[in-house]
Simulated scan of single mutants.
Amino acid sequence: MTAAVTTTVRTTPVAGEDEAHRVRGRRRLTPGRRLPAARLAGPALLLVLWATASAAGQLDPGAVPAPWTVLRTAGHLWSAGTLPTDILTSVERAAYGFAIGLTAGVVLALASGLSRVGEALIDGTVQLNRAIPTLGLIPLFILWLGIGESFKIAIIAIVVYVPIYLNTHAALSGIDSRFVELAEVQGLTRFQFVRQIVIPGALPGFFVGLRLGVTGSWLGLVVLEQINATSGLGYMMFQAQNYGQSDVILVGLLVYGVFGLVSDSAVRLVERRVLSWRRTLSS
C-alpha cells in the first residue's frame, strides 16, 4: 500500500512544471537581450587591426595615418576651435533636414495609407521621386533655392522622408484584415480603429524607416557640405583633400561614423521601449 502511494506521488506532475518547460524552451530559442556596448565590439576590433597594421609598418602613413596620429590631429583641431564649430554646423544642418523629412514622411504615409484618394495622389509621386537619384537633384535645387543653407536642408529632408514614407506606408498597408474584421465586430469608430490598431501595427515599419532616415541624413551631409560651404565637417574634409591632409579627412569620417552610430543606437533604444510588447529574437 505504501509503495503504491509512493508511486502515485512520483508520477503526479508538479503544478507549473509544463509552464517551466515552455519558458526554458523559449529561453533556448531566444539569443537574449543584446547589450548596447556589444555593438562596439566590431568597431573596436577594426580599431585594433588598424593600430596593429600601422605599428607593423603595413600601412602607408601618408595614405592611412595611424590611429594615434588621427587622434592627435583631432586634439589640435579641437583646441584650435575648428572642429567644434564644424561639428555644430553639421549637426544643425542634419537636425533641420531630419525634422522636415520626418514630418513629411509621416504625414504623407498616413495620408496615403489611410485613404484611397491619398494613395492615388501621393504614392505614385513618391515612387517617382524614389526612382530619381536624390543627389542628381542638387543642380535643380541650387537654381531654385540658391547655394546657401536652404538647398542643403531640402536635399537632406528628401533623403530622410523617402525611407520613412516607404516603410510606414508598407506597414499601414500590411495591417492584417482580421484586425479590420475584429474592429467592425467590436464597433470601433474610425478614430478608435486608427489609434488602437493601425498606429500600433505600423510602428515597427516606421522605426525601420526612421533608422534608415537617420543614417541617410549623415550620408547626404557628407556630399552637401562640399558644395559651396564655408563650415561643416564636409567642408573641413574638402579643404584637407586640397592640401593632402589624410589625417584630417579621417577625423571627419570618424566623427560622421560616431554620430551615425550614436543616432542609430538612440533610435533603437526608443524602439525597444515603445515596442516593448513585441517579442523578437533580438528583444
Rank of each mutant, 00 (worst) to 15 (best):
M1C: 08
V5R: 15
T7L: 12
T7R: 11
T8G: 00
T8L: 05
V9W: 03
A15G: 14
A15K: 13
A20K: 07
R24M: 12
G25I: 04
R26E: 11
R27W: 14
T30W: 15
P31M: 12
R33Q: 12
L35E: 11
P36L: 03
A37C: 06
A41C: 11
P43Q: 10
L45P: 05
L47H: 03
L47S: 04
L49E: 09
A51T: 02
T52L: 14
A53F: 10
S54N: 10
A55R: 12
A55L: 12
A56V: 09
G57M: 03
Q58M: 13
Q58N: 08
P61E: 02
P61K: 01
P61L: 05
V64T: 10
V64N: 01
P67S: 07
W68P: 04
W68K: 01
W68T: 13
L71V: 08
R72V: 10
G75W: 05
G81P: 14
G81I: 15
L83W: 03
T85L: 11
T85M: 04
D86M: 05
D86W: 06
D86S: 12
I87S: 06
L88I: 14
A94L: 08
Y96H: 08
Y96Q: 13
A99H: 05
G101Y: 02
T103C: 11
A104T: 03
V106H: 03
L108Y: 08
L108G: 11
L108A: 12
L108D: 10
L110G: 10
L110S: 11
L110R: 10
S115P: 05
V117D: 08
A120W: 10
L121Q: 01
L121D: 06
D123T: 10
G124T: 15
T125D: 12
Q127M: 13
Q127G: 03
L135S: 14
L135D: 06
L137F: 07
L140F: 09
F141D: 05
L145C: 08
G146K: 07
I147V: 15
F151Y: 11
K152A: 01
A154C: 13
V160M: 04
Y161P: 01
Y161W: 13
P163Q: 02
L166T: 12
H169S: 10
L172S: 04
S173F: 07
G174R: 03
G174D: 07
D176R: 09
D176S: 13
S177L: 07
R178L: 09
V180D: 11
L182A: 14
E184C: 13
V185S: 03
V185N: 01
Q192L: 15
F193L: 13
V194L: 00
V194N: 00
Q196L: 07
Q196C: 02
Q196I: 02
A202L: 12
A202W: 00
P204V: 05
G205W: 02
F207M: 04
G209W: 08
L210G: 03
V214P: 00
G216R: 09
G220P: 03
L221S: 10
V222W: 12
V222S: 13
Q226I: 07
I227V: 08
G232Q: 06
L233D: 09
Y235H: 10
M236K: 01
F238S: 14
A240R: 01
Q241C: 09
I249C: 09
G252F: 00
G252W: 00
V255I: 13
Y256T: 09
V258K: 06
F259M: 14
L261W: 14
V262F: 01
S263R: 00
R268A: 15
R268N: 11
V270W: 02
L275P: 13
S276M: 07
L281F: 14
S282R: 15
